[in-house]
Write a protein that binds this DNA or RNA. Sequence first.
DNA 1: TACGCGTGGGG
DNA 2: TCCCCAAGCGT
Length: 361
Amino acid sequence: MPETAPPDSSLPALPARTLRRALLTWYDGARRELPWRTPRGETPDPWRVLVSELMLQQTTVATVQGRFEPFLARFPTLAALAEAPLEEVLHAWQGLGYYRRARALHACARAVIERHGGRLPLTADALADLPGIGAYTAAAIAAIAGEEAVVPVDANVERVLSRVLAMEAPLPGARPKLRASAQRLAAPERAGDFAQALMELGALVCTPRRPACLACPWQRWCAAARRGDQESFPRKVERAPRAVRHATAFLLERVDGAVLFRRRPLEGLLGGMIELPSTPWLEDPEAVAAAMADSAPARTVWTPIPGEVRHVFTHLDLTVRLVRGTIEDGEDGMWTRPFRFSELALPTFTKKLLRHAGLRW
DNA sequence: TACGCGTGGGG
DNA sequence: TCCCCAAGCGT
C-alpha cells in the first residue's frame, strides 16, 4: 500500500461560529492599543485606516507606530494629501521603504477625488480598483472602516490558517485556497474586529517561531498543534539568493559645503528618492573601478573615504565605496548644504552614505 | 506566475 | 554575522 500524506483538514468541517466567538473574546482582552485603532465600538476615520494599511504593507507595526501620527499631522485629510506635490509625500515617507507606496497613496487620493467625489469608497470591490490597494488592503479597509463581512488575508492570517489546517501546499501558490478558507469564517457582525483579531492572533500568539499555543483560543481546533509541528507552517517555496552588487558613490562638495545630489527615476528601486551620484551597481568590483571615470560628476581629485557601506535591499546586497572631491563652483545640479538635508527625500541608503562620510545634519 | 520592491527587529 | 520575517502590490 502506497504511503499517502495525511489530507489537509478543511475549514468547512470546523465550527465557524464557535471559532469566531472564541477569537473575538480573546481579542477583547488582548488587543493592543495602536495609533490607528479607535476605542472598541467606535468607527474609525477611513482616511486614517487607508494610511495605516498602506504603511503596514510588508512593514512591521513597530516601524509604523512611530511614523503614523506625524504623517497624519502633515496630511490630516485625503484632500490635503491629494493637493500636495508628490515630492512632499515622498519626503514624508522617508525611511519607510517600498517608496512606490507613497506614489500609490498620492495617486489613490487623487483618484478618490476624481472618481468618488473625495469620499473613500468602503466596499472591497470599489477599493480594489484604486492604486496601491490590492486584495488584502481592500478587504482590510472594507472590514475595518466599512464593516463589510470580508476577511483580509495577510501574512499573519496565512500563518494562522495554514497551521489550523496543517496545510501542506506551499505559499505563495496556496494563497487562493487560504483566502477561500478565511472567507468561510466571515460574519456580518463585528467584521472589523474579526479582521483585526485574526491578524492580532498571528502577531501576538501564532508567531513564526515558538508560537504560544497554550494561550491560543483556537488551540483545540489546530491540526498543526495537535501534531506538534506548528512551527513548520506555513510551507514555503525556497527563494532565490540575493544578488550581490558593488558601486562607488561620489561625495562632491562645493567650497561653501554644499553636496551634489540627484533624483532617482520614478520607476524602480528607490523611485523618486534622492541619492549621491555613483557608478552603476555592478557585479564585478573591478568593473566598478573601470566605470569611475565615466560616472564621476566632475573632473577633480577623488580621495577614497576609508571603509565601505553595505546596504541590503530585498533582492540586492549592495556594497558601496565612497570617494570625496571638491570643486570651486559652476556645476549645475541639486546642490544642498547639510543644514538643508532634512528637506530632501533621503532614503536610508543615502543617509548611511552621508553618515559614513562624517556628515551630520 | 514570479519577480522587483526597503527597512528594521528578532532569534 | 546571518537569516528570517513583516497588516502586499503591480506587472
